[in-house]
């Protein structure tokens, strides 16, 4: 017994202590490596900008192309040297607007129900369903749009809807974005402190009045951020539109028509036989650069909003 106590007792004779800072090479090497790994992620962004920018530059240097034509014309026909991005942008806009018209109201309503009404039991059933929807690959949504939604629309509206149309692609894209919209909005609603709900209830409000007139406005910026991310997702979505909205570039905002979005065009052309350094090849990078810049701005904006919003209640 006595021995054991002795072994953990402090030393009886103290040496001179050296508390000077020591160089720990291994520690510093590890930190250095981890830092480099972190910095590597910046290089990914830089290389995206460099690669897309470089090839896009080649595209604009081509005598056949002018920036004015690219940003001003509504005709996209590489075969005859027409490069008006609006022919593709129009379809991207149309499908995105339809998708958001579905995803924003449905996603927000779903979020309000889950955060303000649902009992734990109901939540534990409904929430996983949204998560499953979020986990389904977009190519599967594309199949669903072409094989189910389009025939359904055609049987309801009639044959003025083509086999390929932007309406079907947009609707299905909306369903695809719904879970994202709902889970981001729910986070925003949950971040609203309970004291605000209590204040509303104590004034004699119903649950609905508290939810829609107090909680939703208080979560407004978070919901705004969710909508922006939804826009960015819709603009960048490829497979659904590549499969369901058609393969002809056409300047139109009519959802019943077929038209090719920016993403679908890239997928179709690059999926075929494409010779490097041709103007077709370079033009794809110009489109991709535009996509990247648009989504980058949207994502930065949404992050900035979320960050400001988080500070509001802290």
């Amino acid at each position: 017994m006595e021995l054991e106590v002795k072994s953990v007792a402090p030393p009886t004779t103290f040496r001179l202590m050296n508390l000077q800072k020591k160089m720990r090479f291994k520690e510093q090497a590890i930190e250095g490596v981890l830092f480099l790994v972190g910095v590597l992620t910046i290089f990914i962004t830089l290389s995206i900008v460099f690669v897309l920018g470089n090839e896009a530059l080649l595209f604009f240097e081509d005598p056949e192309v002018t920036l004015a034509e690219f940003l001003g014309s509504t005709k996209w026909a590489p075969a005859i040297g027409e490069f008006g991005i609006w022919a593709l942008v129009s379809a991207t806009l149309t499908t995105s607007v339809i998708a958001l018209a579905v995803a924003v109201p449905l996603g927000l309503s779903a979020a309000i129900y889950l955060s303000e009404y649902a009992s734990l039991r109901v939540r534990s059933i409904l929430k996983p369903i949204l998560e499953i929807l979020a986990g389904i690959p977009t190519v599967v949504y594309g199949y669903f749009a072409l094989m189910f939604v389009t025939p359904l629309l055609r049987s309801v509206v009639g044959n003025q809807i083509g086999v390929y149309n932007m309406l079907s692609a947009g609707l299905v894209m909306g369903i695809m974005i719904l879970p994202l919209m709902s889970s981001m909005s729910e986070d925003a609603l949950n971040a609203v402190p309970n004291s605000l709900r209590e204040a509303a209830y104590a004034l004699g409000s119903t649950r609905f009045e508290a939810a829609l007139q107090v909680v939703v406005p208080a979560a407004f910026s978070g919901i705004g951020a969710a909508i922006i991310v939804g826009v960015s997702r819709a603009v960048g979505e490829t497979m659904i539109v590549a499969i369901a909205s058609g393969a002809t570039s056409k300047f139109t905002f009519n959802p019943l028509e077929a038209a090719e979005t920016m993403t679908a065009h890239i997928a179709r052309i690059s999926g075929g036989d494409l010779s490097y350094n041709s103007i077709d090849y370079n033009s794809l990078f110009a489109i991709a650069l535009m996509l990247f810049l648009v989504t980058l701005v949207l994502n930065l904006l949404s992050q900035w909003i979320v960050k400001r919003f988080r500070e509001q209640y802290e």
């Binding site: 992620t41 990914i44 962004t45 290389s47 995206i48 690669v51 897309l52 090839e55 991310v229 960015s232 997702r233 603009v235 960048g236 979505e237 490829t238 993403t263 890239i266 997928a267 690059s270 794809l284 990078f285 991709a288 996509l291 990247f292 989504t295 980058l296 949207l298 994502n299 930065l300 992050q303």
Partner: peptide
């Protein structure tokens, strides 16, 4: 956070070029 939001097709173009 931004890279997480870049459309997947842009990564495809990056992969194609690099």
């Amino acid at each position: 956070n931004n890279l997480a939001g870049v459309p997947s097709i842009v990564y495809g173009m990056l992969g194609l070029a690099i």
